[in-house]
């Protein structure tokens, strides 16, 4: 049966009424109107739904809300906005690193977790960190460059 969960999302306490087994993704998108995280597979296979939870890039599509507790959740919206983008978002814009852009949430959030841990990753580090993030449009070269640019700028 649905119950109340108070989540720590982008630095604010947000209460949602949800079934304990409901994946976090649907609550972020449908209850809280945070459309950065996307539904891609619901199976933990593509990375479109990635959010950062206590510093780790996690797949919100397979994370039940009951497992979240008071963990700090950051979504794409929590990084920045068009008017005030986070340095990573800015680097992605500068490199024009998107085609349809549907995968980009996962790319940026995975990169965020990586750079927080490893501020100066090698190209191979980046590839490995993003290996579970699928992009069908084939924007990979630009995504790599964007993350390298952000790292250089100390994002």
């Amino acid at each position: 049966m649905p119950q109340n969960f108070t989540l720590n999302v982008n630095g604010a306490a947000r209460t949602v009424d949800a079934e304990p087994g409901s994946p976090l993704l649907y609550l972020l998108r449908d209850n809280l109107g945070l459309h950065g995280p996307k539904f891609g597979c619901g199976l933990g296979e593509c990375g479109a739904c990635t959010v950062v939870m206590n510093g780790n890039a996690i797949r919100s599509c397979v994370t039940p809300v009951s497992a979240v507790g008071d963990a700090r959740i950051t979504t794409l919206e929590g990084l920045g906005s068009i008017d005030n983008p986070h340095p990573l978002q800015k680097a992605f814009i500068e490199e024009q690193a998107a085609q349809c852009g549907y995968c980009i949430n996962g790319m940026v959030m995975s990169a965020k977790a990586l750079l927080d841990r490893t501020p100066h990753p090698s190209r191979d580090d980046i590839k490995l960190a993003l290996d579970g993030n699928l992009c069908r449009c084939g924007t990979h070269m630009r995504i790599l460059r964007a993350i390298e640019r952000a790292a250089q700028q100390g994002a």
Binding site: R29, L34, G36, P37, F39, L76, S81, I93, G101
Partner: peptide, 21 residues
């Protein structure tokens, strides 16, 4: 030129059909 759609796609402010309510 820079694409018009890209900034919103980077910040979650772009509305895809999947986001329409």
């Amino acid at each position: 030129v820079r694409r018009k759609d890209i900034p919103g796609k980077m910040t979650g402010q772009f509305t895809y059909v999947q986001d329409v309510h």
